[in-house]
Simulated assay, not measured.
Amino acid sequence: MEDQFVVRQVHTSLSSDSLESAHALSVDVGSPDSIWSIFSTITYNKGKHRASVIRMMEHFMTHETFRKGLSNYLAAHGNKTAEPDDLFANLDSQYLLDFPNRPVSVKTVMDTWTLQSGHPVITITRNYISGALTVTQERFYLRRSGDSTDTHDYKWWVPLTYTSNTNRDFLSTTTRTWMNSASSQITINNLGASANDWVIFNVQQIGFYRVNYDAQNWALLANYLNSESFTNIHVLNRAQLLDDAFNL
């Protein structure tokens, strides 16, 4: 079920959300005309988009904390009208209870995913001598018109998960590093991968974003995928690598 969700829902949503005409998940409307102005074929895919972003939220909160927070929300608002902030408040109360040292609130993270259009592409550039790597984020466009007037500075709170051939772990989807919405670039110094090892970001494609790598890491991944050991890479990450490579 999880495998099918990623291929049929996440990949489809990433594709439709990469257009310049994509709009945010949460949009204020004040009249019938404004409703029609945002209604399009892309709107049909927003259900998949929402589900993909909620899946990401569940994993950075952990399944049990998310489940308890959602139960609290339903108990408080089950027979009432509610807004996204009501959901985020209930989830964050549980998140803070279970993780008192959480680095960021649920609302702070989710506002960057629900109030902005599109999604990021995370680019990984490795220093094969020092072992450090640079992570950058920017909005991903499949195509962009040359006369675009959009000047918004798109940045997200991005939950980063990663693994390498040396320390393969495709089971843990716990966030290892956060990229905050004030940063377009961060450095990770202690990944623990040798120069001959591939690295993969976005374990099981939990995060709603694409990943690009420098040419050498892509080559390491391609060689490994063409070897008899290719099944050591999780099936969801194999699907992710193909989908990202075809769209970048």
Rank of each mutant, 00 (worst) to 15 (best):
1 M>W: 04
2 E>C: 06
2 E>S: 14
4 Q>S: 12
6 V>G: 02
6 V>H: 07
6 V>F: 04
6 V>W: 01
15 S>E: 14
17 D>F: 07
18 S>N: 15
21 S>L: 10
22 A>D: 12
23 H>G: 07
24 A>F: 04
29 V>L: 13
29 V>W: 15
31 S>V: 09
35 I>Q: 11
36 W>H: 13
38 I>D: 05
41 T>F: 15
42 I>A: 02
42 I>V: 09
43 T>D: 14
43 T>E: 10
48 K>I: 15
48 K>S: 10
49 H>Q: 03
50 R>A: 11
50 R>S: 13
50 R>H: 13
50 R>P: 09
52 S>P: 10
53 V>Q: 01
55 R>G: 08
64 E>T: 15
64 E>M: 12
65 T>K: 02
67 R>M: 09
68 K>F: 06
72 N>P: 12
73 Y>G: 03
76 A>W: 11
77 H>M: 06
78 G>C: 14
78 G>V: 14
81 T>G: 14
82 A>P: 14
82 A>D: 11
82 A>S: 13
83 E>R: 09
83 E>P: 15
86 D>K: 06
87 L>M: 13
87 L>W: 04
91 L>P: 01
91 L>H: 08
91 L>T: 00
92 D>K: 06
93 S>T: 08
95 Y>W: 15
97 L>K: 07
98 D>G: 02
107 K>A: 02
114 T>N: 13
116 Q>E: 04
120 P>R: 02
121 V>G: 10
122 I>T: 08
123 T>R: 15
126 R>C: 11
131 G>C: 08
132 A>H: 11
133 L>F: 14
134 T>R: 13
140 F>R: 06
142 L>F: 10
142 L>W: 13
142 L>N: 11
144 R>H: 14
147 D>K: 06
150 D>K: 07
151 T>P: 05
151 T>D: 09
152 H>Q: 12
154 Y>T: 04
155 K>E: 05
155 K>S: 09
156 W>C: 09
157 W>F: 09
158 V>P: 13
159 P>D: 03
160 L>P: 00
163 T>V: 06
166 T>R: 01
167 N>F: 02
168 R>N: 04
169 D>F: 00
172 S>A: 11
173 T>I: 07
173 T>W: 00
178 W>H: 01
178 W>Y: 03
178 W>N: 04
180 N>W: 02
181 S>D: 05
182 A>W: 01
183 S>C: 04
184 S>L: 01
187 T>W: 01
187 T>P: 02
187 T>N: 01
193 A>W: 07
197 D>Y: 02
198 W>L: 03
199 V>Q: 04
199 V>D: 03
200 I>H: 14
202 N>L: 07
203 V>R: 09
205 Q>D: 11
205 Q>R: 07
211 V>P: 12
213 Y>D: 00
213 Y>H: 08
213 Y>V: 00
214 D>H: 01
214 D>C: 01
217 N>D: 06
219 A>M: 08
221 L>E: 00
223 N>F: 12
224 Y>I: 05
227 S>E: 02
227 S>M: 03
229 S>R: 14
229 S>D: 13
230 F>A: 14
231 T>D: 12
231 T>N: 10
233 I>Y: 05
235 V>E: 01
236 L>T: 00
237 N>V: 08
237 N>P: 04
238 R>A: 10
242 L>V: 06
244 D>P: 03
244 D>F: 11
244 D>Q: 06
247 N>W: 05
248 L>N: 08
